[in-house]
């Protein structure tokens, strides 16, 4: 038993050692159209010596509050808290990406499909950046423009050679400087750096709640995502396994009836293939 305990302690220590503390934090705002509505999502990119994690701070904040709420006994206060959550953490997004140092060339992707958390590990895609020779200033840094196709989307990015960090939003990176602005050719996603911070407090470079997620491959993930995209509420409910419960009516936030059989608008994603 003691041996097991020692082993567990060693393992914990090892795991703790694997986490790096972020040295830099880049805050991006992304004007994006995932669904029918266009929204602005706030993202953080926390960069450490060997890795970087890209996540939605509002999603992490929201999930933390939801955890607290679950343990509350007072229903009234829970309701109040739930109502305010939307304003407190606007436009959360469950996507998180952990990129190993460029030399390692791997990343871990964590996201939700319907309400299931999934993760996979994959080699970073080949990004053949082409310099256009154009320059601009973003956040006070001189930036150069480069273009590349990543997972089927054509990205135009501005990177700052002054900041020798080969990272960027999502999996974009591999350039000799930090990517401060990135836009896809279809105009669906536009990331812009709005803040740069050195030594952010209490920021471990890790994926939040990876332990709760199911591991799969990228191929499997893409297949599941494709299946869920555009699903009607009825299909979603069937998948949730509501079994013999008959759902009579579903209403939207503003009290409008939702047709359970109507297929939902297809979502856009950062990767196409």
């Amino acid at each position: 038993m003691k041996k097991i305990l020692v082993f567990v302690m060693m393992l914990t220590a090892l795991m703790a050692g694997a986490q790096e503390k972020a040295q830099y934090r880049v805050t991006y705002d992304c004007d994006a159209q995932y669904g029918a509505q266009r929204k602005v999502y706030r993202w953080h990119l926390d960069i450490a010596q060997k890795s970087a994690v890209f996540y939605s701070p509002n999603n992490r904040g929201r999930e933390k509050v939801l955890d607290e709420v679950v343990n509350e006994n007072d229903v009234a206060s829970v309701m109040v808290r739930l109502r305010s959550i939307k304003n407190e953490f606007p436009n959360p997004n469950p996507l998180e990406v952990l990129v190993e140092a460029a030399g390692e060339g791997r990343y871990t992707y964590l996201n939700d499909i319907s309400s299931n958390k999934m993760w996979y590990e994959e080699k970073l895609p080949q990004m053949s950046w082409e310099m256009t020779g154009r320059d601009t200033i973003v956040c006070g840094y001189a930036c150069l423009q480069a273009k590349a196709r990543v997972y089927g989307r054509d990205w135009t990015v501005w990177f700052a050679p002054e900041i020798p960090l080969s990272y960027g939003p999502y999996v974009l990176g591999g350039l000799p400087g930090l990517i401060l602005d990135a836009e896809d050719a279809d105009g669906l996603f536009h990331f812009t750096a709005v803040g740069l911070e050195q030594d952010p407090a209490d920021a471990a470079v890790e994926l939040a709640r990876k332990g709760e997620a199911v591991k799969c491959t990228r191929k499997k993930y893409m297949a599941l995502r494709e299946k869920a995209n555009g699903q009607s509420f009825n299909e979603k409910l069937r998948e949730l396994g509501t079994g013999n419960i008959k759902v009579v009516r579903v209403v939207s936030e503003d009290g409008k009836d939702i047709d359970l059989n109507e297929s939902r608008p297809k979502q856009n994603y950062l990767d196409l293939e």
Binding site: T27, Q37, K39, R42, G140, Y141, V194, G195, L196
Partner: peptide, 22 residues
């Protein structure tokens, strides 16, 4: 030491969510 020129995050001065700007 590589010192980053910090850029204070401009709190989400304007947030967009569908037809609502905050």
């Amino acid at each position: 030491g590589f010192q980053l020129k910090e850029v204070a995050v401009t709190a989400e001065r304007i947030k967009e969510s569908g037809d609502t700007l905050t």
